[in-house]
C-alpha cells in the first residue's frame, strides 16, 4: 500500500464542522415537510435569491428518483454539477435520519466537485409530519407546510412542526380559497414552538422567499463566524 494522502472525506462520520484543511465546511440546511407543500419551490427560490452572493448546491431525495432534481435543472436555478439526486429506496425519512450515508456522500462529493461551498440545501422526499433530519447530516432544518394542507397542522404538532429550526407556512395566497385561518395557524405554531421562528410566505407574492432567505443568511453568518 502506498500511503500518499488523498482526500478522504471529512474524517469519520462527515458531521465534523471543518474540512481536512481546517477551513469551515459548507453549512448544511435540511428542508422537510409533506409532499407538495412547496419544498422544491422554496429551494428554487432560495437558489435564485442567494446565488449572486453565495456559492451553493442542492441535494434532493426523491421518492421516485429524480423528479425534484429535474425540476431544478429545468428551472436552471444552478448549474447541473451543483445538483445531486439521492435515491431513498421508498423510505425518504430513513435517508435523512436513520441511515444518512448516501446523503453524506452526496454533500461531500458536491464539495469535492465544485470546490469549497458556502451552503448546501438538502431537500427531503416529501414524507409525513414525523420526518426530521439527523444532526449528523444537517446543521439546521426548515420544515415546510402549506395552508392548503389544512390549517390545523400547526395545532397537531409533530416533531417537524415543533422542533424544526424554522417553520415555514407556505402558500398563504391560497388561504382565502381553502378557507384557512392564517392568524390561527400563526398562533398555534407559536404555541407549539415557543421561541423558535415561524415564517408565513407565499412564493406567488411580491416578497416571495425573502424572509426565509434572510433567516438563511443569519444562520450562515453565525456558522462562518
Amino acid at each position: 500500500m502506498h500511503l500518499h494522502r488523498h482526500h478522504d472525506g471529512l474524517g469519520g462520520s462527515g458531521a465534523a464542522a471543518h474540512r481536512p484543511d481546517g477551513t469551515r465546511r459548507a453549512l448544511r440546511l435540511g428542508l422537510g415537510g409533506p409532499v407538495g407543500s412547496g419544498k422544491t419551490a422554496t429551494v428554487a427560490a432560495l437558489c435564485r435569491q442567494l446565488r449572486p452572493e453565495l456559492s451553493l448546491a442542492v441535494v434532493t431525495n426523491d421518492i421516485y428518483t429524480r423528479e425534484d432534481a429535474e425540476f431544478l435543472l429545468r428551472e436552471a436555478v444552478l448549474p447541473p454539477e451543483r445538483i445531486t439526486a439521492v435515491e431513498t429506496g421508498a423510505c425518504p425519512h430513513t435517508a435523512i435520519r436513520d441511515d444518512i450515508s448516501a446523503n453524506l456522500e452526496a454533500v461531500e462529493e458536491l464539495e469535492e466537485r465544485s470546490g469549497p461551498l458556502d451552503l448546501i440545501l438538502i431537500e427531503s422526499g416529501g414524507d409525513n409530519l414525523t420526518a426530521t433530519f439527523s444532526r449528523g447530516l444537517v446543521d439546521a432544518q426548515i420544515f415546510v407546510i402549506d395552508v392548503a394542507g389544512g390549517d390545523d397542522i400547526p395545532r397537531k404538532g409533530g416533531p417537524g412542526v415543533t422542533t424544526a429550526d424554522l417553520l415555514v407556512v407556505n402558500k398563504t395566497d391560497l388561504a382565502p380559497h381553502v378557507g384557512a385561518d392564517l392568524a390561527r395557524m400563526a398562533a398555534d405554531a407559536k404555541a407549539q414552538r415557543a421561541e423558535l421562528p415561524v415564517v408565513l410566505q407565499s412564493l406567488r407574492g411580491e416578497a416571495g422567499v425573502a424572509e426565509v432567505a434572510a433567516w438563511v443568511r443569519e444562520r450562515l453568518a453565525a456558522w462562518q463566524a
Partner: peptide, 28 residues
C-alpha cells in the same frame, strides 16, 4: 463501490482504528 464507501464510513466511526482509516486514504 458506492456501498463500499458508505460501509467504510459507518465502519470507521463504529470501530475507529488505523486500518480502516488507511483503507479510506489509499482507496478514496
Amino acid at each position: 463501490r458506492r456501498l463500499g464507501r458508505q460501509l467504510l464510513r459507518a465502519g470507521r466511526t463504529t470501530w475507529p482504528g488505523g486500518q480502516l482509516d488507511a483503507l479510506a486514504t489509499v482507496f478514496p
